[in-house]
Design a protein around this nucleic acid. Structure first.
Lengths: 240, 240
DNA sequence: TAGTGGTCTAGACCACAAA
DNA sequence: TTGTGGTCTAGACCACTAA
């Protein structure tokens, strides 16, 4: 028989309260939180307890602390979004950042794979976007993005092209913050379509990456399937 | 012009002292450290400062805290070594652990790639080991391991087979602790040799993983090149 | 029962940023 | 100059483990 913890530490309760206010949009990305002593007296706990809660949230990148200025709700920028979630390096092992060229966008209904990854009901409407992400001027990376239409109404209905980095756009335009992502990598032979876009022979080995991006509330937000030609680039991970 | 920090916080100095004693073997893997108040009075700092230093080392998995028992120098076990550094999942996305079958072992001198990865002088002696790591009974993973002979004298000279998990063996038998690892992944066509071992056609897409394992002192310890057939297995990462 | 780490408090002083 | 987070101290009490 499973028994829960006999008590919940105060600082974890405080962390939950603060996270709730951020998730609910009471404090918005880029905004400063009240000073630590202010939060402490409001909640009736010691400043040290608030500090520990904020340290936890800072470690999870939910808030960003800046000495002498204050504690801010973390705001994705094009740079931070790429820095946290883009792990491709060039032949020298140096981080390299992609450009962007949109290939197609469609309305549709979830297929089986998307349903499973995004935990959606059958028939739920989705948007699908296919983009080329050239690296150092070469077409080596292509990605298929699927998001629930209900979360991002009108995302692909405008005439303007979508921004290069979507996660900061999700946050700014829809209040949806990506907190973390889960990636599954395989080596596959390039399909006709992928091979054509990447200038390879059909069946040439490419890396296929399934990414599910998870929001502040731990719910899946986006499914992204990437194909990367690893002849001149590679995927890099630090295991700690 | 680069200017260093104007001062080094006390808790970071304490962390450095404690890490030094562990690196030097003054406190050995599996042994308990003195209690926090004991360390504090020995170093002449406040218990809270020692606590913060130990929290840092625990986050880096250098020490392990056990409530009610004490703080211990982290000891690799077969399970922890695999749990931290083995990221292969089966088709259902569940973690799966490999068996081990040694294929060959050799003495040799570093080649160019190993020199670069392991930061060794030209002509340095190395040991090379090739192993099959069957997953769920199938030959899907093969690995080539290179270590400097000077670090692990006699490692491959015995008659007994090497243990399935090497990192805990490095620690127990040679006092060398692996702290983290850096992996670079590519999709490649299987070479004749790899294809034969994995039962694939030459050129079949496989994942090639270059891993450099780093020690407590941040120096490279081991180079390991892995080929994984990703038809029924995959490599999984969490990005945070 | 004794000893450990885990939590919580209350305050002092310092480094840093902005007005 | 003011206010922020960063560091450091000094203790109290609680939960957990092992003898």
């Amino acid at each position: 028989m499973e028994t829960g913890p006999s008590f919940v530490p105060l600082y974890q309760q405080v962390r939950g309260i603060l996270l709730g206010r951020i998730t609910d949009g009471y404090w918005k990305p880029g905004e400063p939180l009240p000073a630590e002593p202010r939060i402490a007296e409001e909640l009736g706990v010691s400043p040290g307890t608030v500090r520990k809660a904020l340290d936890d949230l800072a470690a999870a990148k939910v808030v960003t602390r800046r000495q002498g200025r204050g504690t801010y709700v973390t705001e994705h920028s094009p740079d931070t979004a790429l820095f946290h979630f883009f792990r491709v390096v060039n032949a020298k092992g140096h981080r390299s950042l992609p450009d962007c060229r949109e290939l197609s966008r469609h309305h549709g209904k979830v297929n089986a794979r998307e349903r499973k990854a995004l935990d959606l009901p059958a028939g739920a409407p989705v948007y699908r976007i296919r983009r080329m992400r050239p690296m150092e001027g070469r077409d080596v990376l292509i990605e298929d993005i699927t998001v629930p239409a209900t979360l991002f109404p009108g995302l692909i209905d405008g005439r303007a092209p979508l921004p290069n980095t979507l996660y900061d756009h999700y946050q700014r335009a829809y209040g949806v913050t990506i907190r973390r992502a889960s990636e599954t990598l395989r080596a596959v032979g390039a399909s006709d379509s992928v091979a054509r876009h990447l200038g390879l022979a059909t069946g040439h080995p490419v890396m296929e990456i399934h990414r599910v991006a998870i929001g502040l509330d731990e719910k899946p937000i986006e499914l992204r399937i990437t194909w990367l030609a690893t002849d001149d680039f590679a995927y890099h991970v630090e295991l700690e």
